[in-house]
Design a binder for these strands. Sequence first.
DNA 1: TTGTACGCGTTATCAA
DNA 2: TTGATAACGCGTACAA
Lengths: 337, 337
Amino acid sequence: MVKIPATIKDIAKYTGLSIATISKYLNGGNVLEKNRILIEEAIKALDFEVNEIARGLRTNKTMTIGVLIPVFEVFFNTIVSSLENVLLETGYSIVVCDYRDDEKLEKERLDFLYKKRVDALVVVPTYLKGSDIKKIIKRDIPIVAVDRPIDDFECDTILVNNFEVSYQAVEKLILMGHKKIGIICGPQNIYTAQERLNGYVQAHTDFNIPLNEEYIKFGEFHNMESGYKKMIELLEIQNPPSAVFVTNYEMTLGAIIAINEKDIKVPDELSVIGFDNLEMARIVKPSLSLVVQPMEEIGESVARLLLKRLKGDKSDFPLQKKLSAQVLIKNSIKRVD
Amino acid sequence: MVKIPATIKDIAKYTGLSIATISKYLNGGNVLEKNRILIEEAIKALDFEVNEIARGLRTNKTMTIGVLIPVFEVFFNTIVSSLENVLLETGYSIVVCDYRDDEKLEKERLDFLYKKRVDALVVVPTYLKGSDIKKIIKRDIPIVAVDRPIDDFECDTILVNNFEVSYQAVEKLILMGHKKIGIICGPQNIYTAQERLNGYVQAHTDFNIPLNEEYIKFGEFHNMESGYKKMIELLEIQNPPSAVFVTNYEMTLGAIIAINEKDIKVPDELSVIGFDNLEMARIVKPSLSLVVQPMEEIGESVARLLLKRLKGDKSDFPLQKKLSAQVLIKNSIKRVD
DNA sequence: TTGTACGCGTTATCAA
DNA sequence: TTGATAACGCGTACAA
């Protein structure tokens, strides 16, 4: 605690060897057995640890990867967690920042990570455009966009098939006879929210079911109260929907509370498909049908791609990958006619 | 993007001035007006930015503060957020790590932050002991324990009056005539959970109400399913409690779902006090009584203390501060006899 | 295998 | 005010 950590120089003095030899030992080079023992003894005795700042200055690498996410919510947390698990073995660490869905903060955090000299960046953008990135990022480091593409910027991108899975969910409802289908969407400026709405619209189009604007509600991601409110609104329509599709975790939570409060019986009085909420789905009775995104797979894909790029392998750049979410049908859907 | 960022040396060349002068300018020193203009021109032209790694090596400061929290959940997020807001103005940034309630990870993350040469540490410990810290932290940097003390380690500590507020909550129920009071606690190895249980016990003792072990359930923080399960268990007791105190956010969420599912009327059939869940409290009908912790205040206190220590002011060390949580009474409590 | 010598980009000291 | 120069701690040719 009190002593300033020893440096390579100290180890050199202690062992009588040169700085270069110690450095080589530290980096896995060959050293005479007796010297190795000596060095290891010195390291213990002097409580030595490499100064990663100095090493970073020299190697121009920090061995850290910057991760920028909108908020610390379970969807992003899970992705980051699995990303990290893969990276762990490789010597890379991650530094995660959230920007609380704030446009200004999004740029500031990106700048922060960049200034910390991360070796690569993983970004879940909201407002961020290509021009912003070009303004902030001046070194040529790998950047991967996750969950949402970056407007006007060419980079590796890993997405989920939001449109398709949303289509499938709504299609399922339609095939069960539903024609009055409500949807609680996210903000229209967010890519994933747009895609999910588009899937809903396309399914209606394909099955020749007219859209009813009353049934389309816009809530906020990361805000369960909005899910609650929008569900209440849907339930209070004179001619309410017979099924509702809620397009995100937190909003699903709020929607469930609304349904309970109104004492609506699922699926008898209302069919429901939620989103990304396995824990809740287990709890809620009857078991909740869900769209489940492959969060772990996203994290792993990002990690693998990142490692490839960090090795200098630029093949397939810019890579565009779309992973598949699944519609998980449980007991919250009833056939109607 | 392509060009490697310019260095002070480049600026020196461009302007014809010396490296030392540029450096002085960068650090707010006095420079002739014409030189200042010249330097600023060069900085723009060459896209210069200081290399903070090099600066850190030289100054032995990274101007970052490491923050270690159990999980990214709303309670900790809010604290971190307000901590950050205060720090923002000062030039310090934070790097946040979670350890997912994992003992091994808790040490690893601490080590990671330490190796990143943070200038100070904010820690919400779970398993961490003084001996662990002494093993990992060798430089003498300020450490602040938040929400929970660190066993066997002398350092600044900022806590919440868990015992007292829990006592008050239970006392309130008792004063409303309740004698059969259930509690859903957190894990016994966590300080805050212990304190909350102790407050419950003490209130019973003071009012001469015998404890009923059946009414004391242990769930898990950060796991709403446990709140759900424990509430179900309480409700299924032959002689169920007339009131339940749930001692954490996520568990309160699960408990509410359980209550809804069982179609229990609050407060007629059951009085409830939840925890830390303002958003939910707004949504749920009837409005939920709550223990509310002063999250913002915690963050601000930590920040101020930290800044003081970073200035070298060691007065009052080790500081022990206890902030006050409040019992917020709403419509979820009924008088019984 | 080991050591010498230099450079990474910055700050800090001390003359000028 | 400015500049030459020595650190900071480490990695790496290159020579020994």
